[in-house]
Design a protein around this nucleic acid. Structure first.
Length: 744
DNA sequence: TAACAGAGAAAAAAA
DNA sequence: TTCTCTGTTA
């Protein structure tokens, strides 16, 4: 059987798939068949009888990647999806904590706070404590808390040398208390809590060490410190052994034991000579590390090599995606970074097309260029969905969207709110939470006055104070009356929730969701809102999602709520229409397209202003550019604009340094030299003309026909306008003489 | 309570 | 420029 599995692998892939049970690092370049290697290895391990599904743990970062891995393994070998632990860090931690909630000190049905929930919980905390949120902004506190958790630090371990940090530390502690009281867990807490569970519970740790004989980690360059520590524990290499940590003498930091790490006999559990501790495989690409800003630590790759004394490093450098010129450009660009682990992509494919470069006079013109090229490629047979327009920052999408909209090309923008983050969905889920746990203050505050029922800030303040005074939940405070003038309204809300609860009794999950959306008044509110159509649609979708959940999993409210927090759903529920893809470079990681347009390749934008003064940050930008380039299979366009509207101002920029780091013989400048001169000069700088012929206005000329105003200068008698008459050409006309009629 | 105006910020983002 | 948040006002 295994020969089938291994067919078609190149020598490096084969080596990676059939690695013995030793720790190994696989440096997998873009498009080198990384996922295939991972899934084939899992299938190979099982089909050769080295391990059963039970003994494998595979970790990814996104639900999408986890799902894909599971599907592909399933296609190669029959597996029981339940016994195979493939998932995201958070998904797997959740699984662990649900199994061992008691040992982890959590309530059985603990709730998960997503980022938005966490922020509102923090705001509520600050209010309750009467903290000036100007001095201690909620977002900053949230960042402080998460950053510390991601370093594995509880409040007690935070070093505070100044008043500000001392206060933040204090608030971190209060926040934890609040979470404990409410039985909720934020994203970082999932990780930290399950890390601590394994660290402090020897029996449990040994159980999992023995169980997970093979651990595979995807996108290893994106792991943060805590995730790495967690992996180490699971692999049985723990800094878990408190003695080991102490002996190495670090200050509580997980530095690398320089000696023979796991082999320490000094107290604690003796390690097996082979086996569990040895089987970790990390797959990553340091050149594609683009998430340092959210705590990813590329250094984990080097630490892994040291801590696990990795002797096997496999490089997957053959690229199955792009043509040669594209890879050469990527290789050349990334070679400007220092301290790489080193890797050079190559392909058996031909060099292919040169990289097309377009320098536009303005962002407007750049967008137009993209539109024209996309149209051309589409006419030549490339599906729109196989083309992507990439940009560094979301703000750039506006002008692109505008041009696309004008041209009538269907497009799809990634980013923005996702399904379970939409307010109507969150409202509905809050009602669902409340009928199962009315003490959930977060949920209660979200909907106590939505739909509006006459409970304002003042009332909430009174309720909050009462609750705090008594030490009970807001719900209990609401039940005990004493809500001042709005007592009646509060009473009605209490009755509503209680009615909902009794009605929900015995209903299935989808029925409960449906009940809640209707009886709470949500549906009615959105129906009377002229812009509520989409929201109604989403509420219906929510019921459908609940039905699907019950079918695929179990009839469990907690399970559904967990999934809602852990899998926020798709960005766009767009139909399967063939549409051009618009997204940030970050969002494009892991994807590939026939043609890629990398836009805004200008100093100040890419690399971004905020990075330019920091060499490390510039390197991350360069990696980002590398990711962007390697998305393209056949065609790569790089465009830039000499001027662009940014924050309401026109700014002028020059080509990005990244462009000059690509060998010029790989580039084909589509318009260098003549372009800037032939283009209309910076319309944005001009004041509106008194003659009313603004740029973009349509005009008619008796001889030239219909055209569009692209520029103007002068005033009064000397006023001139430049009009693009299409086939009749671009003309400068003196307003005093030309008989122009304004059409729009 | 709800509507409105003025201020302030605008890099990237998974779970 | 435009979106979001906050504080004020009807």
């Amino acid at each position: 059987m295994s020969s089938n599995l291994l067919a078609g692998l190149n020598p490096e892939q084969l080596a990676a798939v059939t690695l013995p049970a030793v720790p190994a690092l696989i440096l997998a370049g873009a498009g080198s068949g990384k996922t295939r290697v991972l899934t084939t290895r899992i299938a190979w391990l099982m089909s050769t009888g080295q391990v059963n599904a039970h003994g494998i743990l595979a970790v990814t970062f996104t639900n999408k990647a986890a799902k894909e891995m599971l599907t592909r393994v399933g296609a190669q070998i029959p597996v029981n999806a339940r016994s195979l632990w493939i998932g995201t860090f958070h998904g797997l931690c959740n699984r662990l904590l649900r199994l061992h909630w008691r040992d982890a000190g959590l309530p059985e049905a603990f709730q998960i706070l997503d980022a938005g929930d966490q922020l509102s919980a923090i705001k509520r905390l600050l209010k309750a404590l009467n903290i000036d949120d100007e001095k201690y902004p909620p977002r900053e506190l949230m960042h402080f808390i998460n950053a510390n958790k991601e370093e594995g630090r509880r409040p007690g371990e935070v070093e505070a040398w100044d008043d500000y940090t001392r206060q933040m530390k204090q608030l971190y502690e209060e926040y934890e208390r609040q979470c404990r009281r409410e039985g909720v867990v934020d994203f970082a807490e999932l990780l930290l809590r399950s890390y601590e569970l394994l660290r402090d519970n020897h029996a449990l740790r040994q159980h999992y060490n023995a169980r997970f004989r093979y651990i595979l980690v995807d996108e290893f360059q994106d792991t943060n410190r805590l995730q790495y520590k967690w992996l180490k524990l699971l692999a049985g290499k723990g800094d878990a052994l408190g003695n080991l940590l102490a002996r190495v003498g670090g200050v509580g930091r997980v530095s690398n034991p320089t000696g023979p790490a796991g082999a320490s006999p000094a107290g604690g559990a003796p390690h097996r000579a082979r086996g569990p501790a040895g089987a970790g495989v990390a797959v990553g690409d340091d050149d594609q590390s683009i998430y340092a800003f959210r705590g990813a630590n590329v250094g984990n790759m080097a630490d892994f090599q040291n801590d696990f004394r990795v002797e096997t490093v496999i490089r997957l450098e053959q690229n199955y995606r792009s043509h040669g010129n594209i890879l050469d450009a990527a290789n050349a660009l990334i070679s400007h970074n220092r301290g790489r682990l080193g890797k050079n992509l190559w392909t058996e494919e031909s060099a292919g097309d040169p990289i097309r470069v377009f320098e536009a006079a303005s962002d407007f013109e750049e967008a137009q260029f993209v539109v024209d090229e996309v149209k051309q490629l589409h006419r030549d047979g490339t599906p729109l969905a196989d083309m992507a327009v990439l940009y560094r920052s979301n703000a750039q999408s506006r002008v692109l969207e505008h041009a696309l909209f004008q041209s009538g090309l269907p497009y799809r923008v990634y980013g923005g709110l996702r399904f379970f983050e939409r307010q109507e969905v969150k409202h509905a889920l809050a009602y669902l939470r409340l009928i199962h746990n009315p003490d959930d203050d977060n949920a209660l505050l979200r909907v106590i006055n939505f739909p509006a029922r006459g409970i304002g800030n003042r009332t909430l303040e009174i309720l909050g104070e009462t609750a705090r005074g008594v030490g009970c939940s807001i719900w209990q405070a609401a039940c005990s009356g004493g809500a001042g003038r709005s007592a009646a309204a509060v009473g009605k809300f209490v009755t509503l929730i209680e009615t909902l609860r009794s009605q929900a009794e015995g209903l299935s999950l989808p029925e409960q969701v449906s009940l809640v959306t209707e009886q709470s008044g949500l549906i009615e509110t959105y129906r009377s809102d002229k812009e509520g159509q989409d929201r109604l649609e989403n509420l219906a979708q929510l019921v459908a999602a609940a039905a699907r959940f019950v079918q695929e999993n179990e009839d469990s409210v907690t399970g559904f709520l967990t999934q809602a927090s852990l899998e926020a759903g798709e960005h766009e529920a767009a139909p399967g229409q063939d549409a051009l893809q618009l997204m940030t470079v970050h969002a494009a990681k892991g994807l590939e397209f026939h043609a890629v347009f990398l836009t805004g390749v200008e100093e100040g934008l890419f690399p971004h202003d905020n990075s330019i003064s920091d060499p490390d940050a510039v390197e991350e930008e360069r990696r980002l550019a590398y990711v962007a380039i390697t998305r393209a299979r056949r065609r790569l366009y790089i465009s830039l604009a000499q001027s662009r509207m940014l924050h309401g101002q026109t700014r002028f920029s020059v080509a990005s340094r990244f462009l000059s780091e690509i060998p010029q013989d790989l580039l084909k400048w589509l318009n260098r030299g003549y372009a800037p001169a032939a283009m209309p000069s910076r319309p944005a700088e001009k004041q509106a003309p008194e003659h009313g012929l603004r740029i973009g206005a349509s005009v008619e000329h008796p001889k030239f026909g219909v055209g569009v105003v692209v520029d103007y200068d002068g005033a009064g008698k000397n006023a001139n306008v430049q009009v693009n008459f299409g086939s009749a050409g671009l003309k400068w006309l003196a307003l005093e003489y030309a008989r122009l009629t304004l059409l729009s």
